[in-house]
Write a protein that binds this DNA or RNA. Structure first.
Ligand code: SF4
Ligand code: SF4
Lengths: 166, 166
DNA sequence: GAATACCGGACTAAAATGGTCCTATTTGAT
DNA sequence: ATCAAATAGGACCATTTTAGTCCGGTATTC
């Protein structure tokens, strides 16, 4: 459980890199692949997915490329990951197409629903500005403007949990 | 991401049912399969895994079966799930066999490590007594003794997050 | 010694994953 | 006009993971 797909990781890396570029500039896939060491074919697919999700914008033709559609602090972690994960739920019955036939008699369904909602809520407050380097927030508690919908997870990340790195 | 494997669900269901039985009694696989509607062959494998993990105890021979090895409040969610999940990390590089060759140059590794540690810590405080029915804690805030290592997730579950069920 | 019931490996079918390749189509520069 | 750069997107394949079945073996009770 927990683990994100490879494409999701690539998506996170891509957004991370695009966030470092100038806001009005676009970067080509080949360029981005060179920086990130991600296979360019895969990266191309990932960026197409991110565009469909409205996370990045694309400029076609020569000199074109990709850029973020909005500020990193306005892009949620789940926005980036969603297009590449068929399941964002802890159990099948909590997905839009709840395809578990045992759903009615299952005594695990209700507690799992609570658990599911909690996990999703935690991640909901997690924005991509926490992932752009340098991770000043990770070593010293570099503070940025705290958003309104703060959660425990995001707060913890922002304060920098150095001890968590063992 | 997030989703637990089918076997893990079966394991959770099994523990849930065993928790309702008398503490000194054991239940056979066939019996348990009848109650839970889980294929008995699969359930057998799952219970074997749980035994190896020390979560349940087994009594062989006629009249034998399975029972919990200790109190539900002393069994962590991750104890039940771990044997059936090859990955309990958000990213590959955070697993015991960190098998990502990109690990050195990856700018996503450090923030993911923090995220990973947080998620694991949240689930660490989640015990199986919160999953046994009836879910009084879910509808009315039925309070049991709060354990020492309480976490936000467990606390939220215990208080009952009815709103989370939409 | 026979029935009960756990133990555990081998095996298979299906699905998800990760990646490659190929062909449009759009756009800017020569 | 033409060509090259660069996104758009589908088809395809290899590998791994998942889910489940089957079967012989062992321990225990009656
Ligand atoms: S109904 Fe029960 S078995 Fe089915 S997906 Fe939900 S929790 Fe799992
Ligand atoms: S090193 Fe980077 S790409 Fe590799 S598993 Fe960790 S986060 Fe993912």
């Amino acid at each position: 459980m927990f683990k994100v797909s490879r494409k999701s990781e690539y998506a996170l890396i891509a957004v991370q890199h695009l966030a470092r570029a100038q806001p009005d500039r676009v970067v080509s896939v080949a360029d981005l692949a060179g920086q990130t060491q991600v296979p360019s074919d895969v990266l191309a697919k990932v960026l197409q997915g991110l565009k469909r999700a409205g996370v990045v914008r694309a400029v076609k033709g020569a000199g074109g490329g990709y850029g973020l559609a909005r500020a990193p602090s306005d892009i949620r972690f789940l926005d980036v990951v969603q297009p590449f994960e068929d399941t964002l739920a802890v159990v099948s019955c909590q997905m839009p197409s709840h395809d578990c036939e045992r759903s009615e008699t299952c005594s695990l369904r209700d507690p799992m629903a609570v658990l599911n909602a909690f996990v999703l809520r935690q991640f909901d407050g997690l924005t991509m500005d926490l992932f752009v380097a340098p991770h000043h927030w990770l070593i010293s508690g570099g503070r940025s403007a705290a958003p309104a919908n703060d959660t425990s997870l995001a707060r913890r990340l922002r304060q920098g949990e150095a001890a968590a790195l063992r």
